[in-house]
Amino acid sequence: MELPLHLAWSGLRAFDLDRPRLRMGLYRIVLTEGMREDLIRYLDPGLLVEQWPVLRTLVGPAVRSVWESAFGELATAAQA
């Protein structure tokens, strides 16, 4: 998957989603840089919940807090 320049403006833009490390990188970029439309287009809700315990360590505390406050399932996944 290739991210547009407004998301991946510096560095890697193409991500092999079969590679967990690259998939996490894509999700981190979209979570921190994305607008609503980007979140809908590039994030899979089930995969986000599944990967959240690790992914939450890759984003800053403000991003983590906003997402866990808005989506209880992420807060629950973080405690698992």
Rank of each mutant, 00 (worst) to 15 (best):
A77Y: 02
L22M: 14
R56E: 04
T76S: 09
A80P: 05
R21I: 12
L3P: 06
D18G: 14
L17A: 14
E73L: 02
V54A: 11
F15K: 04
R19C: 15
Q79H: 11
S69R: 13
L55P: 02
R13L: 09
L5C: 04
T32I: 06
D18N: 11
A70G: 06
R13D: 09
R56F: 05
L48T: 06
L5Q: 13
A70F: 05
V66G: 05
D38Q: 15
A62R: 13
E33A: 07
L39A: 12
T76C: 08
V30H: 08
P53W: 02
F15D: 11
D44G: 08
Y27N: 03
R28D: 01
A70N: 08
W67C: 07
M1G: 11
L26P: 02
T32K: 11
R41G: 06
L58Q: 14
M24L: 15
V66I: 13
V49F: 00
L22C: 06
G46K: 05
R41F: 07
V66L: 09
E37L: 14
T57I: 04
L3W: 12
E33P: 00
L74F: 06
R19I: 15
G72N: 09
A80Y: 02
R36K: 14
W52M: 05
G25W: 13
E37W: 13
E2N: 15
A75M: 03
G72K: 04
E50T: 00
A75E: 11
M24Q: 15
S69P: 02
L48M: 04
L43T: 04
P61H: 07
D18V: 04
V54W: 08
F15I: 08
Y42W: 12
L43K: 10
D18T: 10
I40E: 15
D18S: 09
G46R: 03
L43R: 03
P4L: 10
L48P: 00
A8S: 14
R19K: 15
M35A: 14
R41V: 05
V63K: 06
P53F: 03
E50C: 00
H6S: 09
R28N: 07
L47K: 11
T76Y: 00
P4V: 09
R64G: 03
E73V: 10
Y27D: 04
L55K: 03
L58R: 13
L7W: 05
L17S: 13
D44S: 11
E68T: 07
L31Y: 08
L47E: 13
S69I: 06
V66A: 14
A78L: 05
A8F: 07
A77H: 04
P61N: 07
L43A: 07
R21K: 14
V54H: 08
